[in-house]
Nucleic acid binder design. Structure first.
Length: 818
RNA sequence: GCGGGCGUGGCGGAAUUGGUAGACGCGCCGGCUUUAGGUGCCGGUGGGCUUACGCUCGUGGGGGUUCGAGUCCCUCCGCCCGCACCA
C-alpha cells in the first residue's frame, strides 16, 4: 500500500502558484520580444458573462483555447491569451430588482468565482490585461468609441416602430427577437413607436457580406450571417398615385413581371396609409384594420400559414410600363421594415400575392410562359402579355425593362438588404451610459471627450418603468451644456451590452492605457485575432456587431484591420449524462467544481477534449472521465519511476529491437499530435495517440532500453502538456529536470516515421485474403509475386484467370480475376 | 419553403488524399494481485456460421462509377441546426 499515487491535489496548485509568481503567460507589446521569427498569435475565447459560478461549457471553451495557446507558444510564437468579463447585463440587474443587491456587488462576486476557477483549471492567461466592461476605466472608451461613431453619423437617433419587451421594459435589437419573443425572457414582443439610438450597420451590409469570403469561419456561421444580411438584387420602380400626386417607389426582384401587376399593397405602418384613405369610403375600415394589426403581437402577425388579410384604400396607382390603374390596398403581409414598405403585386408569379388575389377576387394575369398551366409560377420562361417584350426570355427582358425604366426615369436597378440598423439604446440601469446631453438652446450634444467617462449614477430603484432608471437620478441627469454652459439634461438610456463586447478584443491589446482606447502600434502587433473560440449562439449578434465595429473603426482610421477574427471555431455543447441540454429544471447539471476537486483539472480538461470532436455536442459521462484519469495516472507513474535520476531524455542514438519500436512510436505520436493540433481541432485523436504511446511504453511483451523508455515518457509528457498542463509539466520535470513550457515543441524525425518492413495487404477482387510482411520499398513486380504466392490468395484464385493486378507500393496488391 | 449539417459496434467516437472498417476510451466477459475492494494489472470483445483452419454479412435504404467506396455521383428515408409573408 506504500506505492505512491497520482494526486492532482499535490501537483496542480504547485504549478499554478509558480506560473502566477513568475507571470509566465504575460507577453510584451514590444515586437522585439519575438525571438523566433515566427508570427505572433492572438488566441481568444469569447469572454464570459459573469453570472453565478462558471459551468462546464466554460471549462470546455477555455480548455480548447488553452490547448491552442500552449501549442502556438511551444511552436515559437508569442501568444496573446487574455481574459475579461462582459459584466453589464440584464441578469445582474433583474437579480438586483428581486433582491435589492447592487448589480455591481453580485457581478464582482461572480467575477471572483470565475477568477478562482480559471486559476484552478490552470488556464494560461496573461492576467496583466484583465478587463471588465463595467469598470469606468473600460466603459470610458466604450463611450469614446460611441462618440467617434456619432461624429461620423454612424450613431444616430430616430423615431421608429421598434421591438419592445413588456417584461424587461426595454427596447430590443431585431437580432434579440427570436420567433417574436424576447431572447432573454421569452415574453412576447410588442411594437412601439419610439425615439431610439441606432448604429448605421446597414451602411456596411455589402462589406459585411463580401468580406465573409476572406475569413476562415465555419460554413454554417457564414451562411447564417449571409442569411441575416439578406442581400437581394432587383429594381426600384416608381408607381404614381395621380389623385394625390405622390410617387410610391417599390423594390422588386422581378421587374420582368411588371406587366403582370394587378394591384398594389402598403404595409399597415406605412406613414401614408391614413392620408390615402382619407375622404374615401374606406377610411373607417382602414383605421380599424391598421389599429387591429398594430395591436397584434409580432409573433401572431408573423405566423407562417396565416391567411391573407387587408383592406382596400380606395385609391389607385399607375403602372409605369403600361399606364394601368392598380387598386391600392393595405395588408399586413407587407412589412414596413423591408424595402419601401410597399409592393407591386403580381399574383401570377408570386405565392403571397396570389393568395391575396384569391382572397380578394383580384385579377391574375400571367406574363411568364411555362409548360404547366398552374399558377402561381415563379420560374423562368418566355414573356407573354408584356407588350414589346413578348417572346423574350424573362431573364433577358429583366435587363431590358430595367434599362427602359432607367431611361424613362421610372426606376433603376437596386440592391436591397434584410439587415436593419442596430438599435443600441436600452431603458435599463446596468449598462454603459450614452454620453450625450440635451440643451434647450443648443440641442443634442456629445459629452466632451475630456469629461469621459460619464459614470453610471447610484440609484435606489433599478426597476424599469418605461423609461430608464437613470432618469430617477435627478442630480446626475441635470448638468450643464458643454456648448453654452446653460442648463442641460443627460441622456438616460444605456447601451446594449453587445456594444461593450464589440471591441473588447481591441482593448486587450493595450488594456492599461489611460490616455487612449489603445495605442495603434499595440493593435498592429496583435490584431487580428488568429483564433477565436466560442459558442455558435453568437453566430449572428456578437460576431456581426464586432465585425461592424472593426470596419467602422478602420474607416475612422483608428486601426489597420478589416476583420476582427481571422479564424473562428464554434464549440459544441456539453449535454447532461441523459443526453439532454443541462438545465436546473431537468436536474442534470454537472458542475465543474466537484469534478475538478475529485479528478483534478487536468483530467477534467482532457476528458472534455477526448469525448469527441469539439465542435459537436457530447453527453457527459463520468466513467469515461475516470478512464482519462486512469491514463493520466499511468503517465504520472512513469514519471515517478523515472524520477530517480532526471536526465536529458535524448532519443537513443541508434536504437534496436524493442527500443527502436518504442522510439518510432514516440515519433509517430509527435507527428500525429502535431498534425491534429496544427491542421485541425482534432484533440480527441491527439489524446488517443498519446494514450497509444503510453500503452506502448507499458507493453509487457517488450523490453526497451531505459533510455528509450525515458525518451518516450518525456515525449508523452511534452505532447500532453497543452491538454493537461500540470501533469505535463510535472512528468516532464520528473524525467528531464526541465520546464516543458520552455522547451520547443518536439519535431518528428522523418527517418523514424519510416519502417523497414510493412504488412502487405493481399486482395482478390478487392477482398482481403491474406497479409504478408515485406521490406519497405519493394518493387512492384516483387510485391505482385509475393501476393500471388500467399496461401489465402492462392485459395481464391482457384484456377481462375488473372485479368489484372493493381499494386499500391508499400500498401497492398489487388488481384483481379474473372 | 430556403440555407447549413449529420446518419459507422452495447455507448462516445476513429478511418486526414478512394486502398486492411471499428484506432482510442467507456461498458461488458475472463484471469492475476489484494485480508478486503466502486483499487491496480493482464487478456478478450461488430453480427452470423465453424471443434479448428476459416467462411460470410456489415458504415440509414436502393442504384451507379471504380481493380477497390464509410469516403465520389444519383436517388430515397430519418435526424439536428439556422432563417422564414424579405416582395
Amino acid at each position: 500500500m506504500s506505492e505512491r499515487r497520482y494526486d492532482p491535489k499535490q501537483i496542480e496548485p504547485k504549478w499554478q502558484q509558480l506560473w502566477a509568481d513568475e507571470r509566465t503567460w504575460e507577453v510584451s507589446n514590444d515586437p522585439s520580444a519575438d525571438k523566433t521569427g515566427e508570427p505572433k498569435s492572438y488566441v481568444l475565447e469569447m469572454l464570459p458573462y459573469p453570472s453565478g459560478e462558471p459551468h462546464i461549457g466554460h471549462l470546455k471553451n477555455y480548455a480548447l483555447g488553452d490547448a491552442i495557446a500552449h501549442f502556438h507558444r511551444r511552436t515559437g510564437r508569442e501568444v496573446l491569451h487574455p481574459m475579461g468579463y462582459d459584466a453589464f447585463g440584464l441578469p445582474a440587474e433583474n437579480h438586483a430588482i428581486r433582491t435589492g443587491v447592487h448589480p455591481r456587488k453580485s457581478t464582482d462576486e461572480s467575477i471572483a468565482a470565475f477568477q478562482r476557477a480559471f486559476r484552478s483549471w490552470g488556464i494560461s492567461i496573461d492576467w496583466s490585461r484583465e478587463i471588465a466592461t463595467h469598470e469606468p476605466s473600460y466603459y470610458r472608451w466604450t463611450q469614446w468609441i460611441f462618440l467617434q461613431l456619432f461624429r461620423r453619423g454612424l450613431a444616430y437617433r430616430k423615431e421608429a416602430a421598434v421591438k419592445w419587451c413588456p417584461n424587461d421594459a426595454t427596447v430590443l435589437a431585431n437580432e434579440q427577437v427570436i420567433d417574436g419573443r424576447c431572447e432573454r425572457c421569452g415574453a412576447e414582443v410588442e411594437l412601439r413607436q419610439l425615439e431610439q439610438w441606432f448604429f448605421r450597420i446597414t451602411d456596411y451590409a455589402e462589406r459585411l457580406l463580401d468580406d465573409l469570403d476572406t475569413i476562415s469561419w465555419p460554413e454554417h456561421v457564414k451562411s447564417m450571417q449571409r442569411n441575416w444580411i439578406g442581400r437581394s438584387a432587383g429594381a426600384e420602380v416608381t408607381f404614381r398615385c395621380e389623385e394625390l400626386e405622390i410617387d410610391y417607389p417599390v423594390f422588386t426582384t422581378r421587374p420582368d413581371t411588371l406587366f403582370g401587376a394587378t394591384f398594389f399593397v402598403l404595409a399597415p405602418e406605412h406613414p401614408d396609409v391614413f392620408r390615402l384613405a382619407a375622404g374615401t369610403d374606406h377610411e373607417q375600415e382602414v383605421h380599424e384594420y391598421v389599429n387591429r394589426t398594430m395591436s397584434e403581437s409580432v409573433e401572431a402577425r408573423g405566423a407562417a400559414e396565416k391567411p391573407k388579410t387587408g383592406v382596400a384604400l380606395g385609391r389607385t396607382v399607375t403602372n409605369p410600363v403600361n399606364g394601368e390603374q392598380l387598386p391600392m390596398y393595405v395588408a399586413d403581409y407587407v412589412l414596413m421594415e423591408y424595402g419601401t414598405g410597399a409592393v407591386m403585386a403580381v399574383p401570377a408569379h408570386d405565392e403571397r400575392d396570389y393568395a391575396f388575389a384569391r382572397a380578394f377576387g383580384l385579377p391574375v394575369r400571367r406574363v411568364i410562359g411555362s409548360e404547366e398551366d398552374e399558377l402561381p409560377y415563379t420560374g423562368d420562361g418566355p414573356m407573354v402579355n408584356s407588350g414589346e417584350f413578348d417572346g423574350l426570355h424573362n431573364r433577358e427582358a429583366y435587363e431590358k425593362i430595367v434599362a427602359w425604366l432607367d431611361r424613362e426615369g421610372r426606376g433603376h436597378a437596386s440592391i436591397n438588404f434584410r439587415l436593419r440598423d442596430w438599435l443600441l439604446s436600452r431603458q435599463r440601469y446596468w449598462g454603459c451610459p450614452i454620453p450625450i446631453v440635451y440643451c434647450e438652446r443648443c440641442g443634442m450634444l456629445p459629452v466632451p471627450e475630456d469629461q469621459l467617462p460619464v459614470e453610471l449614477p447610484e440609484v435606489e430603484d433599478y426597476k424599469p418603468r418605461g423609461k430608464s432608471p437613470l432618469a430617477a437620478a435627478e442630480d446626475w441627469v441635470r448638468t450643464t451644456c458643454p456648448e453654452c454652459g446653460g442648463p442641460a439634461r443627460r441622456e438616460t438610456d444605456t447601451m446594449d451590452t453587445f456594444v461593450d463586447s464589440s471591441w473588447y478584443f481591441l482593448r486587450y491589446c493595450d488594456a492599461r492605457n489611460d490616455e487612449a482606447a489603445w495605442d495603434r502600434r499595440a493593435l498592429k502587433r496583435w490584431m487580428p485575432v488568429n483564433q477565436y473560440i466560442g459558442g455558435v449562439e453568437h453566430a449572428i449578434l456578437h460576431l456581426m456587431y464586432a465585425r461592424f465595429f472593426v470596419k467602422a473603426l478602420s474607416d475612422l482610421d483608428l486601426l489597420d484591420v478589416e476583420e476582427p477574427f481571422q479564424a473562428l471555431f464554434t464549440q459544441g455543447m456539453i449535454l447532461g449524462p441523459d443526453g439532454q441540454k443541462m438545465s436546473k429544471s431537468a436536474g442534470n447539471v454537472v458542475s465543474p467544481t466537484p469534478i475538478v476537486d475529485r479528478y483534478g483539472a487536468d483530467a477534467a480538461r482532457c476528458y472534455i477534449l477526448f469525448i469527441g470532436p469539439p465542435d459537436q455536442d457530447a453527453a457527459w459521462s463520468e466513467s469515461s472521465l475516470a478512464g482519462v484519469h486512469k491514463f493520466l495516472g499511468r503517465l504520472w507513474r512513469l514519471g515517478d519511476q523515472l524520477s530517480a535520476e532526471p536526465s536529458d531524455a535524448q532519443a537513443p542514438a541508434d536504437p534496436q529491437g524493442d527500443s527502436l519500436t518504442l522510439v518510432r512510436k514516440a515519433h509517430w505520436a509527435i507527428e500525429k499530435v502535431t498534425g491534429d493540433l496544427a491542421g485541425r481541432f482534432a484533440f480527441n485523436t491527439a489524446l488517443a495517440a498519446i494514450m497509444e504511446l503510453v500503452n506502448e511504453i507499458y507493453n509487457p511483451a517488450r523490453a526497451p532500453s531505459p533510455q528509450a523508455r525515458r525518451f518516450a515518457a518525456a515525449t508523452a509528457a511534452s505532447l500532453v502538456f497543452p491538454f493537461a498542463p500540470h501533469l505535463g509539466a510535472e512528468v516532464y520535470e520528473l524525467v528531464t529536470g526541465k520546464r516543458v513550457w520552455e522547451e520547443r515543441w518536439p519535431d518528428a524525425d522523418p527517418a523514424m516515421l519510416q519502417t523497414e518492413t510493412f504488412e502487405l495487404v493481399c486482395q482478390v477482387n478487392g477482398k482481403v485474403r491474406d497479409r504478408v510482411t515485406a521490406p519497405t520499398g519493394t518493387a512492384r513486380e516483387e510485391l505482385e509475386q509475393l501476393c500471388l504466392g500467399t496461401r489465402g490468395v492462392q485459395a481464391h484464385l482457384d484456377g481462375r484467370q488473372v485479368a489484372k493486378v493493381v499494386v499500391v507500393p508499400d500498401k497492398l496488391v489487388n488481384v483481379v480475376v474473372r
